[in-house]
Design a protein around this nucleic acid. Sequence first.
RNA 1: GGUGGAAUGGCCGAGAGGCGAGGCAAGGGACUGCAAAUCCCUCUACACGGGUUCAAAUCCCGUUUCCACCU
Length: 301
Amino acid sequence: MSLPLIIICGPTATGKSDLALEVAEKYDGEVINADSMQLYRGMDIGTAKLSIEERRGIPHHLLDILNVAQDASVAQYQALARAAIDDIQSRGKVAIVVGGTGLYIKSIIDEMNFPETDPALRKKLEDEAELLGAAELYSRLRVLDPEAAAAIEPANTRRIIRALEVIEVTGKPYSANLPSDTSLRYPDAIHCGLAMERSTLAPRIEARVHRMFEQGLVDEVKSLIGEGLLEGATAQRAIGYAQSIALINGQLTTEQAIAETVVATRQYVRRQETWFKRDQRIQWIREGEPRLPFIEERINS
RNA sequence: GGUGGAAUGGCCGAGAGGCGAGGCAAGGGACUGCAAAUCCCUCUACACGGGUUCAAAUCCCGUUUCCACCU
């Protein structure tokens, strides 16, 4: 008998990591991180990453696997996460996926396939976008793949570039590469979301951000800059990190950096809620509802 | 007490007689190799009371508040 995959998602600062530990302790589980920024080695304070001690001996996977100059990618994450699940389950343990990056979780449980990327081609498209403008690329996309064009905003340069890239790499329309998301790779997964009222979350976020700066987030960022933080495209954009970089560059005062980080975190929560809200598979654990029992109930049924 | 200036939506801020700048925040949404990213949508305000005018946030009078400077 093998226990199903357990997934714990939800907005930031709702207590996902702690719940995962409880579940892991109760069911002999191991945790797989589904948080795009916790993938980075050295990004600890600002991502609220559990320290080794805080992990209480529970194995955690997909933490600290990238250096700050590298760029994460869903495709890579998907492969690693699925491999980790297989590994954990093959040893008879319970795999617990925990994190707030909706796309990453989706990449695990849905049949998503990500056509190859071509750095040279992408570079070319990026240059063209800069030179000719997004509108030019967009009209090109409209010709090559009207369906994809209809689904992408004309101003969303990044998406337009990727669509054109996929078309060129695969020789097929971008839309043809989009499998349905109804397929379930882990049909009996227990997929829980932690819900919390904004009014409860707001002060938690405020306190958490202040704590991060007190604990030395800016020093962490300084040392990461030495490790190439500014070379990559992804890590330096992380909430709290971007603001710390601006602070270090003298573009923000400490107070401003803190305030902007709080705002950015709140906005992130909103995007997370929007993303998770539409996934009907998620069973929401309401604020104040006992969490571990909620999951125990589903496991036992 | 006097003189001058200012009062615009949650905040910043342009406009200076003819249908509501813009930015930020907030709220909603999208999302398939950077996703803590990228992008879309929404949010009729002109301190108050009179007046002039076909028409006033914009002009005039008064009131209130604030800021300067003066006594």
